[in-house]
Amino acid sequence: MKVRWRQVSTGSFENSRLIVGMPDVGLAGKQAVDYLVQELKPTLLFEAYSTHFPAQVIVTKEGLIELLKCELYGWRNPEGGGDLLLLTGNAQPLSPEGQYAFVRELLEKAEELNVKEVYSLSGYLVEFRPPEKEPSIYAVATSQELLAELKSKLGLSQLEKGSIEGVQGLVVGEAKVRGLKGVCLLAETPGYSTPSGRPIVDAKASKALLKVLTQILKVEVDLSGLERQAALTEEFMERVSQLEQQVLEQVLKVGRQPPKEKPYYV
């Protein structure tokens, strides 16, 4: 079995919009959906496990062992403007066959929950993003009309060429095949990581994604929590950068030490 869905609770949803945020570059999309889950307090509907997730568990800071899984939540919109289905997780399938199986089964579940539109959120790797600059948001859509609408109403940039790897890309492609409207929003991120290579959440990119998404969905969410997190990340990265500079200076200093014996030139 490539994917196993464990139903946690049931619920009925109308005119649903599926929002997908999987582990991605800068963890921008995943953090954005995690934040929505935290703020909207939706109902956990399904847990998904896959034999095509990485063959590992996670040991948390507290010392607890966690299997890799994805979670699908449902949220009834009190304003009545279309409900939300939110997918997040601490892993995504590694193999193409696992990713395809996961996406197909996810959309089957979403269709049972009356999904009409699919929005996928992701980071878009850039070499450098000036600290004072807000991340640009790029968009791709399942139709030119939809893309034109997003560009004109929200001033989004169009992603001209390339590919979007993983579930965050596939889910929009599969949505198109099924006749659903689909959009992938990508936020510029330098893809922060610790000196040991562990990814760090780029909350600024997540906030930029949610700023756009909440306008599209017409759902109000207080983003101040992400602003605080973004400030902490910038501060941390500044410290890392200073530390790197110090180490570099030390290395250069050692490298420049004069030789013990004066060289003699003829």
Partner: peptide, 27 residues
């Protein structure tokens, strides 16, 4: 506790899946 991060392979999965089957798992 002293280790934080991924626990790879057979042993890690055994610990995780045992927990899902209601067993206590101590690594």
């Amino acid at each position: 506790p002293g280790y934080v991060g991924p626990f790879l392979g057979f042993s890690g999965l055994l610990a995780g899946l045992a927990g899902n089957h209601g067993m206590d798992g101590l690594c």
